[in-house]
C-alpha cells in the first residue's frame, strides 16, 4: 500500500506548474509538502485526485492509476481530497455535508455509524449538525471539510492548506487531529502547507517544492534542521 508518483508533470496552458516530480509515500505515513506561493502544491494534489490532467508521468495508489481516472472514481479507490479553502457546501447543513462524503457507499447504516465517529473526532460539529454550513466559523468549516473527506473511509487523505486563514490555536488543534488520525487509524496523509513549521512538526517526512520541482526531500527532522530550508521556508 503506497502512493507512487514518478516524473509527474502538469501544465496549465503554457505554464508548467508541476515539473518532473517523483516521490513515494508508504501506508500510515504523514508527508508534508511545503513550498512558497505558486510552487505547484495545489496543482500536485488536484492531479492526484483527478481534478487536473497530467501531461506526463505516472501516479498510482495501491496500484490504481490515478492519472487517467475521474475524481468520482478515484475516491472509490480510497483517496479523499480536501481542496484548498474550506471545501464545504455552504448551502447544505453540516449533517448533509457529512453525508455527502459517504454518499457513494450507498449503505445508510454504515454512513450514520461513521457520522458518529466523525462527531466524536470533532465534537463541535456534533453540536451543529442541523445548522447550515455557512453559519460555521472558519475553523469549524475546515473541520467539516476534513470530516466530509473522512466519511468516505479513505485510506489516504490529501489535505490542501487546512491552516489557511485560521487562528494559531485552531491550527494547532487541527494539526494535532491530523497527526492522531495518521497514528491511530493508520491513515496515510499528504499535507500541503504554507505553515511549514507546523506541518513539519507533525509530519514523518517532508517534500519541498520550488517552481514545480522537488527541491529537497527527507525526514521532517532533517528538513527542520536543514539550514537552507530553515532560511527559505521556516523563517529563521
Amino acid at each position: 500500500m503506497s502512493l507512487e508518483v514518478s516524473q509527474l508533470t502538469v501544465h496549465h496552458g503554457a505554464i508548467c506548474a508541476v515539473n518532473d516530480v517523483s516521490f513515494s509515500v508508504k501506508k500510515g505515513e504523514l508527508v508534508a509538502v511545503i513550498g512558497s506561493n505558486g510552487a505547484g502544491k495545489t496543482t500536485l494534489l488536484r492531479t492526484l485526485s483527478g481534478l487536473n490532467k497530467a501531461t506526463h508521468g505516472s501516479a498510482t495508489w495501491n496500484g490504481h492509476n490515478l492519472l487517467h481516472s475521474k475524481p468520482e472514481r478515484i475516491v472509490r479507490h480510497g483517496v479523499s481530497h480536501v481542496s484548498e479553502g474550506k471545501a464545504v457546501i455552504p448551502e447544505l447543513t453540516v449533517s448533509e455535508n457529512l453525508e455527502l462524503g459517504a454518499i457513494w457507499r450507498k449503505n445508510k447504516k454504515e454512513s450514520s455509524a461513521s457520522k458518529a465517529e466523525i462527531t466524536a473526532i470533532f465534537p463541535r460539529l456534533g453540536e451543529r449538525l442541523k445548522q447550515r454550513a455557512d453559519t460555521l466559523s472558519g475553523g469549524e468549516r475546515q473541520m467539516l471539510a476534513i470530516g466530509r473527506a473522512l466519511m468516505s473511509k479513505p485510506e489516504i487523505l490529501l489535505l490542501d492548506e487546512p491552516s489557511l486563514g485560521l487562528a494559531p490555536l485552531v491550527v494547532e488543534q487541527i494539526f494535532q487531529t491530523i497527526r492522531d488520525l495518521a497514528t491511530s487509524m493508520g491513515l496515510t496523509v499528504v499535507l500541503v502547507e504554507q505553515n511549514a513549521m507546523g506541518a513539519l512538526k507533525i509530519a514523518d517526512n517532508g517534500i519541498v517544492l520550488n517552481l514545480g520541482k522537488v527541491a529537497v526531500t527527507g525526514t521532517a527532522q532533517s528538513l527542520i534542521a536543514d539550514p537552507q530550508v530553515r532560511a527559505a521556508y521556516l523563517g529563521y
Binding site: 485526485s49 483527478g50 481534478l51 475521474k70 475524481p71 468520482e72 475516491v75 472509490r76 479523499s80 481530497h81 481542496s83 471545501a87 464545504v88 457546501i89 455552504p90 448551502e91 447544505l92 455527502l100 462524503g101 454518499i103 457513494w104 457507499r105 466530509r148 473527506a149 468516505s152
Partner: peptide, 13 residues
C-alpha cells in the same frame, strides 16, 4: 451548488 466537491465525494455529477 458545488460540482467539484460533489465529484470529490464520489458523485457522478
Amino acid at each position: 451548488f458545488s460540482p467539484e466537491i460533489a465529484r470529490l465525494s464520489g458523485i457522478r455529477v
